[in-house]
Write a protein that binds this DNA or RNA. Structure first.
Length: 888
RNA sequence: GGGCGCGUAGCUCAGCGGGAGAGCACUUCCUUGACAUGGAAGGGGUCACAGGUUCAAUCCCUGUCGCGCCCACCA
């Protein structure tokens, strides 16, 4: 016998262990099932589960379990990412607390420490994914820095280099002066900052009384100015073009050039040009052959290229000092408050400095072409489709991808330099040495590039590197291309686009045919969850409190496409209650002798009630299947919720009770209801399993499995229900629908009339059709039981005085059917109802009199309107009669 | 500045060209042998605003206002 409530913690741990040890998650490359593959977006190896992971992995698990049940050879490829900067920062911070520093420690020692840290905390997130119920094939778990994946990274880098798609270039990069590394454009986030716009007066050479005013938000960069640009058509400055200004504080003679970059509307109309520290100025500098003077060191402190008193100053300190000095000289025209956006490093949180360095770049423009084409022609589908626009916009304007990072944790770039800095890019030191010997004609000493690759470089290879590439493995052949990628919209560019580039370049085939992008999970107010806001909802807390199934169901139910996903714990509680409901429905069956009957055929049902249930289930099953096929997760969840709670528990169980519990019931009918009830439970468990794997597996084992001598395999590998739509019986649906309506309406009348709980309502059946009469007779016991109303024949005599009457007749089918008389208070309500109906009739009459409507509207719509008007009229007549009777 | 999306019941959100929906919250009633993590009934909405298309608009189009996200080198 099942417990009264279920205990998620115990059940979840037990089933997960069983599944995993029995190999239920394992892909079966030797089976003849059609492969179905999803690669996990690899979480940071040292991370822990947050709500985004919970959502992301729940959706993947649903798809994997669904397709596994549908007979596919499902491979959910798990693994973790080394997450270069993030991990290095964590370990560095940890060292700091021990008074250690990575630079003193040295590269090798530091990397050892990181590996150690990885060993210690590397299992956290995979353990947490297990608690969520993720049915990934853990036997195939990979890590972006394990041996095989590292080989893949080397090969990709070397191949791209030899194809000219990886190159070294000297240009401005986004420099993080705290982490001391270059970062890519994507790792820069613009922040609105309240600052100032300073207007400085630069003296013009040879014109004693003449100044040219420039505006800047960054006074400190003026020390690196090498020109002033004005718009060629700007009358105010026309006479100055070709002349020189004298850079205050420095004394440098800088040209005044004409360039369309200068916008007469902005600032003073003249703009100072600092080619070494601004992306636009760099371009202007190139056009005019300007000197590029770098005034910052790697820490963004002023270097030896500035006057002595400013050297070594931190940039903001320099700013103050420069403004003060210029003020002293009377060269500050004015200072305006000014809000503008400033680039910040998304990891370090410090302002990014455009800095001139030599870095490695990937020619993204070239690699982006095949993916663009693939999305355009539909070989890769993005869901929601609106993401495609964003994708095109970015890919069409893609910039070179800076892939070198001045970090230690990551894949070290396979480039070696000879004595003259000639570079050899090879798979190994041996090959580089050999190449060097060939190049120089003698052995030379080679020095390896110290940089590592951007983390996303290795994750870009994930769909094929995890399957064994560059080796020609069975897995690669079988599981690539993968089927669907499920990930957050926020890493569309970081990861998804790059997987497409690398996958198509190296495999010659798209890495996946569908990308399902979900939005960010926020708190219930729509705020991003963050530590500083203190509004983080920890998925593990919710799992502890309500169970993994409840959390999974919640995330599924809120996973509308392309929308922010607000999560409230209250909702999780509600779905926990849903799980309990299912549990108790099964318990009810168990207590009432409903046992699965082997070989049960739903098509053989003879009773209206069982036929109705079978039909409703077939409809629900079709809905769930379609919804999952189309990634409409919330619809699948809602269809199941409605069916299980609304159809099965609220109505089927209640309607079945008299048969099951009535001692005098027909034994054959009892047997059929029992068998159908149990069979339906089994079907519901199947349909719900992808979303709520634990409770369904438990109930399957205890209730379904048991009755079969425990021989049945687990639900996880059971076959997905495929119920024919032919099981939907129209007559049964109509009849039970009628019954439900009668009961609901009588209940409403009782409540409205304040009929005491114990009292019975007489039903007046006069005027009813034979069919209605016979239905009332057939279902009299149920109506009496569920609505506490009993029918009396009008012919049998007068109503008891003061009793409430309900008229149910042929018109009640499909219409508001309960009508109450005998209480004077009802007349107002009736009048109101009649008024409403009159209005509706008038409206429809008007519509039907409209020639255009008749001519243009489809016939069935016209027919429907007729029908609706007739219905309204007959109801109105009935109510009018009732009103008259009331009045008399 | 460009792009995308969203404004529907007190809250969180479905729906989407022809009768306004769910969950939670709220009110009233119910310790009925599956379930109080439950059951029954109920109140509550000019479907942001203004135009337009249509026989018909919460739904399609345009504009306005408000909110969110992404991209962008703006002094």
């Amino acid at each position: 016998m099942l417990e009264k409530t279920y205990d998620p913690a115990e059940i979840e741990a037990r089933h997960y262990m069983k599944w995993e040890t029995e190999g239920a998650f394992a892909a079966r490359p030797d089976s003849n099932g059609k492969p179905y593959t999803i690669v996990i977006p690899p979480p940071n190896v040292t991370g822990s589960l947050h709500m985004g992971h919970a959502l992301n992995n729940t959706l993947q698990d649903i798809l994997i379990r669904f397709e596994r049940m549908r007979g596919r050879d499902a491979l959910w490829q798990p693994g973790t990412d080394h997450a270069g900067i993030a991990t290095q920062m964590v370990v560095e911070r940890q060292l700091e607390t021990q008074g250690l520093n990575r630079r003193n420690m040295g590269r090798d020692e530091f990397i050892k420490r990181v590996w150690l840290w990885k060993e210690q905390s590397g299992g956290t997130i995979t353990g947490q994914l297990r608690r969520l119920g993720a049915s990934a094939d853990w036997s195939r778990e990979r890590f972006t820095m394990d041996e095989g994946l590292s080989r893949a990274v080397l090969k990709v880098f070397v191949d791209l280099y030899k194809q000219g798609l990886v190159y070294k270039d000297m240009r401005l990069v986004n420099w993080d002066s705290k982490l001391l590394t270059a970062i890519s454009d994507l790792e820069v986030e613009a922040r609105e900052v309240k600052g100032y716009l300073w207007y400085f007066r630069y003296p013009v050479e040879g014109m004693a009384d003449r100044h040219i005013v420039v505006a800047t938000t960054r006074p400190e960069t003026m020390l690196g100015d090498t020109a002033i640009a004005v718009h060629p058509d700007d009358e105010r400055f026309k006479d100055l073009i070709g002349k020189h200004a004298i850079l205050p504080l420095v004394g440098r003679r800088i040209p005044i050039v004409a360039d369309e970059y200068s916008d007469p509307e902005k600032g003073s109309g003249a703009v100072k040009i600092t080619p070494a520290h601004d992306f636009n100025d760099f371009e202007v500098g190139k056009r005019h052959g300007l000197e590029v003077i770098n005034i910052f060191d790697q820490h963004a402190k002023l270097n030896e290229n500035v006057p002595e008193e400013y050297r070594g100053l931190e940039r903001y300190a320099a700013r103050e000092k420069i403004v003060a000095a210029l003020e002293q000289l009377g060269l500050v025209e004015k200072i305006d408050a000014h809000t503008h956006s400033v680039p910040y490093g998304d990891r370090s949180g410090v302002a990014i400095e455009p800095w001139l360095t030599e870095q490695w770049y990937v020619n993204a423009k070239t690699l982006a072409q095949p993916p663009l084409e693939a999305v355009r022609n539909g070989r890769i589908k993005l869901i929601p489709k609106s993401a495609e626009k964003t994708f095109f916009q970015w890919m069409d304007n893609i910039q070179p991808w800076c892939v070198s990072r001045q970090l230690w944790w990551g894949h070290q770039i396979p480039a070696w330099y000879g004595p003259d800095d000639h570079v050899f890019v090879e798979l190994s030191e041996e090959e580089a040495t050999a190449a060097a010997v060939k190049h120089y004609g003698k052995p030379v000493e080679l020095v390896r590039d110290t940089d590592v690759l951007d983390t996303w470089f290795s994750s870009a290879l994930w769909p094929f590197s995890t399957l064994g590439w560059p080796d020609d493995t069975k897995e690669l052949k079988r599981y690539y291309p993968t089927d669907v990628l499920v990930t957050g919209l926020d890493i569309l560019f970081f990861w998804v686009a790059r997987m497409m580039m690398m996958g198509m370049h190296f495999m010659g085939e798209v890495p996946f045919h569908t990308v399902y992008l979900h939005a960010l999970v926020t708190d219930e107010k729509g705020q991003k969850m963050s530590k500083s806001k203190g509004n983080i909802i920890d998925p593990l807390d919710l799992i502890d409190k309500y169970g993994a199934d409840a959390l999974r169901f919640t995330l599924t139910a809120v996973a509308a496409q392309g929308r922010q996903i607000k999560l409230s714990p209250q909702r999780v509680e509600g779905y926990r209650n849903f799980a309990t409901k299912l549990w108790n429905a099964t318990r009810f069956c168990e207590m009432n002798g409903c046992q699965p009957v082997p070989g049960f055929d739903p098509a053989q049902c003879t009773l209206t009630l069982s036929k109705w249930l079978v039909g409703e289930l077939a409809a629900a099953s079709a809905k769930v299947t379609t919804a999952l096929e189309e990634y409409r997760f919330n619809e699948a969840a809602n269809a199941l919720y409605d069916f299980i709670w609304g159809t099965y528990c609220d109505w089927f169980v209640e309607l079945a009770k008299p048969v099951l519990q009535g001692g005098d019931a027909d034994a054959k009918a009892q047997a059929e209801i029992r068998a159908t009830a149990a069979w339906a439970i089994g079907q519901m468990l199947h349909l719900l399993h992808p979303i709520m794997p634990f409770i369904t597996e438990e109930l399957f084992e205890k209730f379904i499995g048991k009755s079969d001598g425990g021989k049945m395999a687990g639900l996880i590998r059971a076959a997905w229900p495929q119920l024919s739509t032919a099981l939907q019986d129209r007559d049964a649906a109509a009849e039970i629908g009628w019954l439900i309506k009668v009961i609901s309406d009588i209940r409403a009348v009782r409540a409205e009339m304040n009929v005491p709980a114990g009292a019975q309502l007489p039903l007046l059946v006069s005027g009813a059709s034979e069919e209605t009469k016979s239905r009332l007779q057939r279902y009299g016991a149920l109506i009496e039981r569920l609505a506490r109303a009993a029918s009396i024949d009008a012919a049998a005599g007068a109503m008891p005085k003061g009793a409430v009457q309900i008229v149910i007749d042929e018109a009640t089918y499909g219409l508001p059917l309960a009508d109450v008389i005998d209480f004077a208070a009802e007349s107002a309500r009736l009048k109101k109802e009649i008024g409403k109906l009159e209005a509706e009739i008038g409206k429809i009459d008007g519509k039907l009199a409209n020639q255009a409507f008749i001519a243009k509207a489809p016939p069935e719509v016209v027919e429907e309107q007729h029908q609706r008007r007739d219905d309204a009229k007959s109801t109105r007549d009935r109510l009018t009669q009732a009103l008259q009777r009331l009045a008399s």
